[in-house]
Amino acid sequence: MKVDGKVAIVTGGGGGIGGALAARLVAEGARVVVADIDADAARSVVDEIGTTSAIAVGADVSDSDEIRGLVERAEEEFGPVDLYFANAGITGPPGLDIGESAWDQALDVNLRAHIRAANLMVPGWVDRGEGYFVGTASAAGLLTQIGSAAYSVTKHAAVGFAEWLSVTYGDQGVRVSCLCPMGVNTPLLYAGKNSDTELGALATRAVTGAGAVLEPDDVAEIVLRALEEEHFLILPHPEVLEMYRHKGADYDRWLSGMRRYQQSLRG
């Protein structure tokens, strides 16, 4: 899909990958609603973009009514939404014993927000015969994240939901892509390191030690080129595909290798 002339919503747009995606979309001719739970951060991104083709909206994607309001605002300002980037995400605390509320928050933001958005967007796209859903997951959704069970589980689920959307609606005009980067230079990458826990620090070291840390602008460029080709799996770090192949070829060997890698990070 060419984004020129299209209307897009980008959640988690107040910085990082989301902010870079919003800027890139506008640069290529799209009109964009930049949404973030931090409304000031969203406004800062729009101010930096510096055009009437982007507006900022504060929205909490863990609330269905707020997502509905976000879509309504986009339609009022720009018209029917063509692309929805379910990009908002959180890491979740490291470890297993993190409490029900932390699990619920991770599930709400990293998975249920995608489901809520699809419930609102997909029926209209099917009627129109065209629409594009882009879910931001993570390489952790393919390969598992050392440190945070909540992050790993919810990102696996986000990949699974995107696959289901594509299988179920792909022949009805609904395009789907799933973004699965490794390390990107955003605050999210360093959340584990800053958690003051051993597992959190391991999580950050695991990602930064596995491959290059990319800039958000680089990721945004890769995403836009992938959308033109309508690729499902978007891998800014090409080595993730090789790792994924090794995992599928010999699961037990891959698990033992991950345990060795985890142990090596402890020094």
Rank of each mutant, 00 (worst) to 15 (best):
E215D: 13
W125D: 06
D47H: 03
I67E: 02
P181G: 15
T144A: 14
G211H: 01
A106W: 00
G160C: 00
G131M: 06
D196S: 10
L107S: 03
A226W: 02
L83W: 02
G147D: 07
N194Y: 01
M1E: 09
E76A: 14
T11S: 09
K6T: 05
A150L: 00
L235P: 14
A22V: 08
G14T: 03
L21Y: 08
Y151D: 04
E76Y: 00
R245W: 01
E198V: 15
P216S: 14
V7C: 10
I90G: 09
T208V: 15
Y244L: 10
T204D: 11
R175W: 00
N87S: 07
N110C: 04
I17H: 10
E75L: 07
L241R: 14
R245A: 07
L241S: 14
R253S: 15
A113I: 10
Q262K: 10
I49E: 02
A140K: 07
R253W: 03
R175V: 10
R73W: 02
G5K: 02
G141P: 09
I9M: 10
G131S: 12
S195V: 01
G257R: 15
G89A: 06
S148F: 07
N194K: 05
D252E: 15
W164S: 07
G173L: 01
A137R: 01
A20R: 08
P93D: 00
E66Y: 11
P181R: 13
A220G: 12
G79Q: 03
G124I: 02
D218H: 14
S64N: 08
F161A: 12
D60C: 06
D217V: 13
L224Q: 10
L165E: 02
F232Y: 10
E198F: 15
G79R: 04
L214T: 10
G209W: 00
V223D: 10
G99E: 01
G69D: 06
G14A: 06
D82Y: 00
R175F: 03
Y84A: 11
H231C: 05
C178Y: 03
K193M: 09
S53G: 08
S64L: 12
G16E: 01
V32A: 01
R31G: 09
E242S: 12
L265V: 13
I9Y: 05
V174T: 05
V219N: 14
Y244H: 04
C180R: 07
A41I: 13
S264R: 11
E130M: 06
G89H: 02
R260P: 08
A86T: 04
R259C: 11
R225W: 08
P80Y: 00
I222M: 13
P216Y: 07
L70A: 09
T52M: 04
L142N: 09
S44P: 04
Q145E: 10
Y84V: 09
V159R: 00
A191S: 11
W254P: 15
R225M: 13
I115A: 05
L227G: 15
I222T: 14
I17P: 14
S256P: 11
A249L: 06
